[in-house]
Design a protein around this nucleic acid. Structure first.
Length: 314
DNA sequence: AAGACGAAAGTGGTTGA
DNA sequence: TCAACAACTTTCGTCTT
């Protein structure tokens, strides 16, 4: 018993520096150590169940309205079947005919959509869990997918690509950044295909997506590069300045985030090569260089890193 | 030798006629 | 539907450390 408690205690500590000063960003599925900046857990398990059941009596007491309503079940967890029970025998002739018709339609509609959704949601869960996406995003993407199926948007497209598109859209809406590359990796769908269906689905469904913010990527990239919290917050500062200087519009957000990180790493003497930063950000060194150069002349940051390049002549 | 830098050519997507 | 365009990539040669 004491062992269990000891383990639970350890989980609340940063494995890097031992600090207990952790902050948990539920929406992003990240636990961040406020002292050293390490992202301890961006692999969110499943926090959606708020009680535990030790036996069935207890389960019955604690459950409130049965299974939670959820879009990750094909019928949102609330199956409806027309007239299975005894109700029908209480109806007269005409009503009874109407009833049969309804039941037939119900059956047809549900089997067509249901078959598709069952498969698709299984796929969605697979991809989502391999990307360690938080539950809220999974829900959202399942909702988007369901809408897409109901509007017949899947016709002519592969189910998997629509699933990937829905996931990507959900990530963007929840400001849980995952790049197209990561989605592509997890779903085995080509990047451009995901992008295409993503645009198509969001346009058809009228989903508005805010342009993704480079700052959303910082925490994850910084953690992958093992950069200090100080460096991380500095790079966010840089990003804000860059935004004011209109350096961010039209550029790929990952490139900007990568460049900001690269610069702030230099400034704090935590040198990382362009190659390293480029790899975790999924862009090329060239892009980092371009952004980096823009940051330097537009924001006049030269003096801060002068020590590394002192006798450079134009 | 490895990293940083920049030029040139190619790719995929957006936009506007 | 097509062409112009911007952002980004790939590739490669040169310079710096």
């Amino acid at each position: 018993m004491t062992q269990v408690m000891a383990m639970a205690e350890m989980l609340k500590r940063c494995p890097e520096c031992g600090s207990i000063n952790l902050s948990w960003n539920r929406d992003k599925g990240e636990i961040v150590c406020k002292d050293c900046g390490l992202v301890i857990e961006d692999k969110m398990v499943d926090f959606s169940q708020e009680w535990r059941e030790f036996d069935s009596t207890e389960a019955d007491k604690k459950r409130r309205t049965g299974a939670p309503m959820t879009y990750t079940q094909f019928d949102q967890g609330l199956g409806t079947e027309v007239g299975q029970k005894g109700d029908i025998f209480r109806l007269g002739g005409r009503d009874r005919n109407k009833f049969f018709r309804l039941r037939k339609w119900q059956y047809r509609i549900s089997t067509a959509i249901e078959r598709n959704l069952k498969l698709a949601l299984a796929e969605l869960k697979r991809v989502s869990s391999s990307l360690k996406l938080p539950r809220s995003v999974e829900e959202e993407s399942a909702r988007i997918y369901t809408l897409a199926v109901q509007r017949g948007l899947v016709r002519g497209r592969s189910m998997e690509s629509v699933v990937a598109g829905a996931l990507y859209a959900a990530c963007r809406r929840h400001e849980v950044p995952r790049t197209l590359d990561e989605l592509s990796e997890a779903s085995q769908i080509e990047k451009k295909e995901i992008g295409r269906t993503y645009r198509f689905v969001t346009r058809e469904l009228g989903i508005t997506i805010l342009p993704s913010n480079p700052a959303d990527y910082i925490a994850r990239f910084a953690s992958a590069l093992k950069l200090a919290a100080e460096t991380q917050s500095k790079s966010i500062e840089i990003l804000e300045k860059a935004q004011k200087a209109e350096l961010t519009s039209g550029r790929g957000p990952t490139g900007i985030a990568a460049a900001a990180l690269y610069v702030s790493a230099l400034m704090h003497g935590e040198k990382r090569t362009q190659r390293e930063v480029a790899d975790v950000a999924g862009v090329t060194e060239v892009t980092i260089r371009n952004r980096y150069k823009e940051l330097l002349d537009k924001l006049k940051l030269e003096k801060d890193i002068k020590k590394t390049k002192k006798k450079r002549r134009k």
